[in-house]
Design a protein around this nucleic acid. Structure first.
Lengths: 259, 259
DNA sequence: TGAATTCTCGTATGGTATACGAGAATTCGA
DNA sequence: TCGAATTCTCGTATACCATACGAGAATTCA
C-alpha cells in the first residue's frame, strides 16, 4: 500500500534531478547527516553514460556497462538514478544544454537567421551524439535545456507578429521539421558506423533491384527523373540538399503567411 | 570459407522475398522436388507478425511469439525468413502496400491534392500500424510498395515543371516531412496506449515544473504566449494543427519557387 | 557504545535473437 | 521396393538486458 512506484511513476523526483543545478531558493541543498558516504555523484553517472554512448553506441550505455566503467556494481547506480528511463532523460537534457543559443541581447535581427542558428546547433548536437536519434522525444525531459530551446524559438517567431496561437503552431512545425531531419541525418550516420557500410554501398549492393525487378513502364516518373540525371547525388548529399531546400521553403511559406 | 552470411548479408535473397509476387518472367516459380513439405508459407509468417504487432505491440512480434501463435517451434520460422531483420522488412513492405495511391489515370489535376492523398494515406497507415513509428526507414525495404509510393510522389511533383534534380529534392523534402510527422503522431498514440496514460495527463503530472522551477523572467517569450492564451489546445490538437500548418506552408513555399 | 541512516552490490528472474545439429518427412532413381 | 538425397522441424545452449530483493558495510549522532 505504501509502496512507491519507481522510475517514471515519480515525476517530482525526476524533475528534481533534471533541475538539480537550478534549485529554487526555497529548497536548500539537503545537508549530509548520518550514513555511508556516496562514492560517486550523479554527474559521474550521466557523463559516463554519455561518453559510452558516444563512443560505442547507446547499447554500451547499459546499466551494467556504465557501472563497470565506473568500477562499481550494477545495482549501485540505482542509488543515483531511479531507473534507466531517468538516466536517459538526464543524458538528453545534458547534451541539449550544449547547444549555444544566443540570449536576448545577442541575437541577429533577422528571424530567419535565428532559426538558422537553431538548425545548425541542433544538427551539431545530433552529430556529436548520434544515439539521440534513437530516443523518443514525445515525452521529452522537461529540464532547463528543453525549456531554453523552446524559449529561443518562440522568441524568434514572435517578431513576425502572428497571433499567439499561430506563433506557437509555426514554432512547433519548425522544430518538428528540424529535429526530425537532423535526427534522420544522425540515424543515417549511425547506421553507417554500426554496420561498417556506407549507405551508397548499401544501395549499390541492391543493384539487382534495377536489373531484375524494376519495371520501367510502371514507373514512368522515376524513369524520367533518372534519364534527366536527377539522381546524381550521393545519398548523403541528396539528404543534405533536401533538408536545406525543405527548411527554406517552409520558412518562405511562413513568411508569406505574415500578410 | 564457404559459409554464407545470414540475413542482411544476402541482399539478393531479401529482394527475392520482397518481390516474390512480382517475379520476373525469366525466373519461374521453383518447382517442388524431394524433401519434406513446408507446413506454412511466408505470408502466414508475415501476416501473423503484423497482427501481433498491431494488437500487442512490436515486442509481441518476436520470433518466439510469432512461432507460438502459429503453433510451431521458434526455429521453424528461420526456414521461411533469414532473420528477424528480413521479417521486419517484409512486414513494412506489406503494410505500405495498403496505401491507396491512385494510378496515372485516376489522379486529381491539382498536384497539391495528390500530395494530400499521400499525406492522408500515410497517416492512416501509421494509424493502423503504430509500430511502424519504431522502425528505421534509413535503409527501407526496397520492395514494390516503396517504389510505388516514390513513383506516385515524383509523378505529382513533375507537373510543377521544376528541373529533374529539384523535383527529386522537393519530393524528398515532402516525404521527409510527412513521414516524420505521421510517425510522431503514431508514436504519440503508441506511448499513450502502452503507458495507459494520455499525453495531457502526463504533462499535468508535471505541474511542479511551472510551480516550482519555471522562471518567468528567463522565459519571456513563453510567458507572452501563455498570457495570450497561445497554449489552449491539447497536445493532440496542437500536433495536428502544426502538422497541417507546416505541410501547407511547405507546399506554399515550393509552389512559389516555381517562378 | 549502540542505534539510526545511507550507500553497496550479489543473486535471481524473465525476456531477447539465433548458431548448431539431430531427426523426421518426402521424392526420386535404380 | 529400397536407399539416397533433399528439405523442413525444432530442442538446446549462449550471451545479453533491467531491476526486485535483501544482506551487509560505512558513517554519524545521541
Amino acid at each position: 500500500m505504501n509502496k512507491q512506484q519507481s522510475g517514471a511513476g515519480q515525476p517530482d523526483r525526476t524533475l528534481a534531478l533534471l533541475w538539480r543545478n537550478h534549485r529554487p531558493a526555497a529548497e536548500p541543498a539537503r545537508k549530509r547527516g548520518a550514513g555511508r558516504r556516496p562514492s560517486l555523484d550523479l554527474d559521474d553517472v550521466v557523463l559516463t553514460a554519455i561518453r559510452l554512448a558516444d563512443e560505442h553506441g547507446l547499447a554500451a550505455a547499459s546499466m551494467g556497462g556504465v557501472a563497470k566503467e565506473l568500477g562499481v556494481g550494477t545495482m549501485t547506480l540505482y542509488t543515483y538514478v531511479p531507473s534507466k528511463e531517468e538516466l536517459l532523460d538526464l543524458m538528453v537534457d545534458q547534451v541539449m544544454s550544449e547547444r549555444e543559443l544566443p540570449g536576448p541581447g545577442a541575437r541577429p535581427d533577422d528571424w530567419r537567421e535565428q532559426i538558422e542558428i537553431y538548425s545548425e546547433q541542433t544538427r551539431a548536437m545530433f552529430g556529436r551524439h548520434l544515439w539521440l536519434s534513437q530516443i523518443s522525444t514525445i515525452r521529452p525531459p522537461v529540464g532547463p535545456s528543453m525549456l531554453a530551446a523552446r524559449e529561443y524559438l518562440l522568441a524568434a517567431m514572435l517578431v513576425l507578429g502572428l497571433s499567439a496561437a499561430e506563433t506557437n503552431t509555426a514554432a512547433l512545425a519548425i522544430t518538428t521539421y528540424i529535429d526530425s531531419a537532423a535526427g534522420l541525418e544522425a540515424e543515417s550516420r549511425l547506421i553507417e558506423r554500426t554496420t561498417g557500410q556506407a549507405n551508397d554501398a548499401w544501395w549499390h549492393e541492391r543493384n539487382d533491384l534495377w536489373e531484375t525487378y524494376f519495371d520501367v513502364e510502371q514507373h514512368p516518373a522515376m524513369t524520367t527523373i533518372w534519364n534527366a540525371k536527377g539522381y546524381q547525388s550521393s545519398t548523403q548529399e541528396a539528404a543534405a540538399e533536401s533538408y536545406r531546400y525543405g527548411l527554406d521553403r517552409l520558412l518562405d511559406g511562413i513568411q508569406a503567411q505574415k500578410h
